[in-house]
Design a protein around this nucleic acid. Structure first.
Lengths: 178, 178
DNA sequence: TCGATATTGTAAGTATACTGTCAATCTACC
DNA sequence: GGTAGATTGACAGTATACTTACAATATCGA
């Protein structure tokens, strides 16, 4: 039967999945930034570096599909990474609209060096749970994100978003797509 | 044994809990905004309305503790709610620094009317999972958020943050703390 | 009571995150 | 081959989210 307008309490907030997701995200960012403070990289900037490392010569639009971040937002992120000299932007010869993204030497170095801190952060987020529960949570969360993919404004389009890149082969991409 | 600098792939991103939390939060907001589009309320604005409804005469600082949102951020949120005439701000007589928050008539009406849409949104977020899995995920997430409370920049200080309010008894708070 | 300390709201600055729009450019169809 | 429609990066605008700083005010200790 339909819930007949029960009184509104804080439980309406505290038990709502949306609220829990928000809280958890805030906690996760907080832990990430703390662990990685020595590198002055945000989670989004880190993810961008990984994606550019994995797909050298990717453009901003495809990058946004690969990490499921908004294209507009990514513009600023790229700007900051460039101003920190962690990446380089080169105009494409085939398409004058496109700017290709590459890791700089220092970008590659930062990415290599930050990995242990990132792993430590990821561990800390789940630390309070029992190991078995961590695994369960991750499994369910992965499923849920995947099944809800289309519901998000920027659905993840992992490797298949990069088909165009393979063609012209801007150098030695080791198309690491299994 | 320590992982000997394995090659960096996109899996370093896709399987990281932090990334999954971010994705899920984006999806959750997207669904919330879609379901509640008729009311032009964001998740944060909704949570603020609930908290002000539950604790009439609360001030901004305590509100931030009750919903675990940043105090600075909340300033803007309150401003927007006020400019939409959903809440009212009255200076406290006991403390000239403080501004007390109350729902306006139209704020109370909006809160009442939006509840079904909010519930629909919360259901949709978990919809793709089997009912048993939904419960498991919520349980684990609740635990994790609670146990990580102090790790976040703005730890939740639910009802106990409101002790001061009870004293002067700014009206009929039904201290619904079990 | 007076001075150090703390709290409150506010503001400025940075960084996501999303909505639009726009000009330049590319593609495809006719 | 020339134009309609799509794509690309950029920009403007709104809304969290956090940091630091600040003035006004409160409070507490000596």
């Amino acid at each position: 039967m339909p819930s007949k307008s029960q009184p509104i309490t804080m439980d309406a907030v505290y038990t709502a999945p949306g609220y829990l997701f928000r809280r958890m995200q805030q906690i996760a960012v907080s832990i990430f930034v703390e662990e990685c403070s020595a590198f002055d990289l945000t989670p989004v900037q880190y993810a961008s570096l990984v994606a550019i490392h994995t797909h050298p010569g990717i453009d901003a639009t495809r990058l946004s599909a690969v990490i499921a971040f908004d294209r507009s937002t990514l513009g600023n992120v790229i700007e900051r990474l460039e101003s920190k000299a962690l990446i380089e932007r080169k105009p494409s010869r085939e398409d004058k609209r496109v700017k290709l993204l590459y890791l700089s030497k220092s970008g590659a170095a930062v990415l290599r060096d930050i990995m242990p801190s990132v792993e430590r952060a990821q561990l800390r987020m789940l630390q309070p749970l029992k190991p078995a529960d961590r695994k369960t949570l991750l499994t369910l969360l992965t499923q849920l994100v995947d099944l809800n993919n289309e519901a998000s404004r920027v659905p993840l389009r992992a490797e298949d978003a990069l088909e165009h890149l393979g063609k012209q082969g801007e150098g030695a991409l080791g198309t690491g797509v299994s």
